[in-house]
Design a protein around this nucleic acid. Structure first.
Lengths: 233, 233
DNA sequence: CGCATGCTTGAGCACGTTCAATTGCGGTGG
DNA sequence: CCACCGCAATTGAACGTGCTCAAGCATGCG
């Protein structure tokens, strides 16, 4: 596999200028790691040793409840950062990261990363702002899980996925996701997700094309969510 | 009311050294604001103009679902920070902050705060780390809301409150909270909370003393939560 | 061809919400 | 001092959503 160039990560949440600066510093420190589909990059409880920048492929970041239940917190793809929760005070990762496609990431040892933080002002601030946005998203989602019924949660999940991954040339959400994973991302169980999807198909709001899902009426989905929530924003 | 001295905020999440430095800079910029019980400091949708450091009193930070439902995301007391979600990219606060006791806060205009960020390295990094921890907490709580039944959520809420506010001289959780607020913090409705509390009292795990709640067997509460969750951490 | 695995559907059940009615209590005014 | 009002606390009952369990069905691979 050819050596990916970190500069391609410009699409990352970091502004290209400060990233370029940063990349030039770490040039010799970075190490690429590849993992196969369904293998984990790290697991809950693993000691934090570093962070990861995704170069290619898609990952799910998830948190276990018991042996058969989990919740998928977010997905990551090219340009995204993974393992950043390790920056908190916990010495162990509070989440797991698992590849849902073959993945290549750039590994940055934590000690080096922290040293960089102390050197590069803008970087720490950008990261802070990134975390603020993530926290905002998380709290919005938490509220939705508490108050929104399953069908709405599934609709919301699909819209979120389309926003993040875009659509392929058939107009489908550009990610191949097992039903189980979609259920975990929607905060429900396999069967409930299944029925919710069926209802959305029956209502002509979405369409199944092979293993992919195409959103037919996004506004109708949003409408459906909003109808259960007067003050959606 | 006497002018509170910001240096007393040492107990804040920021290390005292960098806070002291910071405080000396803002000396002349700070402005104290007081709000009465049940008044809001800011509401969802208000334009972000600054941040707040709590000098005295207690606040709830909450997010509305519809006109009668909300979720309480966290509480804040002396030394805590409020309005920090305004640091994200949204131009408006995504949450509201309401006093549950008479409150005095120190107001910092956002422009000034951001300028400070650019000057003081350690500060931005500390803030970043704070956000990372908050995000971690938020995601743990999100998972709990999805998978934990109401009784467990209430037990969890009580333990969280005791951890944050400690106990008074009667051994009760040192916060006076309406049942409605406790319900919103537990992610359920008034009546369900009521019954859950009753069950906990009946099982001799907690005790009601006036308007306060005393945890009798914290380990038993944790046990109860864990029994529904093999892998609690 | 047979077994295994995942997908699909049905039925029952439990939890939690909703709605409604009652009780208790503090404050207010006659 | 009592009567009344209002509000929060409390309880009961019914309903609905979503989870669980289990059986049927398709698919694939040895």
């Amino acid at each position: 596999m050819s050596q990916p160039n970190l500069c391609d990560l410009k699409s990352c949440f970091l502004c290209s200028s400060c990233l370029t600066e940063w990349v030039s510093v770490i040039g010799q420190e970075r190490k690429n790691i590849t993992v196969k589909k369904s293998q984990t990059l790290f697991k809950e409880g693993d000691p934090v040793t570093g962070m990861f920048f995704v170069y290619s492929g898609k990952l799910k970041v998830h948190k276990r409840w018991d042996h058969e239940k989990e919740i998928i917190l977010r997905f990551a793809q090219r340009g995204d950062i993974v393992g950043h929760l390790g920056l908190g005070d916990e010495p162990a990762y509070p989440v797991s990261a698992t590849a849902i496609e073959p993945v290549t990431v750039c590994y940055i040892p934590m000690a080096f990363f922290e040293a960089t933080l102390n050197i590069n002002h803008g970087f720490a601030t950008k990261l802070m702002r990134f975390f603020a946005n993530e926290l905002h998203e998380s709290e919005k989602r938490m509220r939705n899980f508490v108050h929104m019924p399953v069908k709405g949660r599934v609709a919301q999940a699909l819209i979120t996925l389309q926003k993040q991954f875009g659509v392929n040339n058939e107009g489908c959400i550009n990610i191949e996701l097992s039903r189980q994973d979609l259920a975990s991302f929607s905060g429900t169980v396999y069967e409930s997700l299944f029925r919710a999807v069926n209802e959305l198909v029956a209502a002509d709001l979405i369409k199944l094309i092979g293993k992919h899902i195409r959103i037919l009426k996004e506004d109708a989905l949003l409408e459906m969510i909003a109808s259960e929530n007067i003050l959606i924003k």
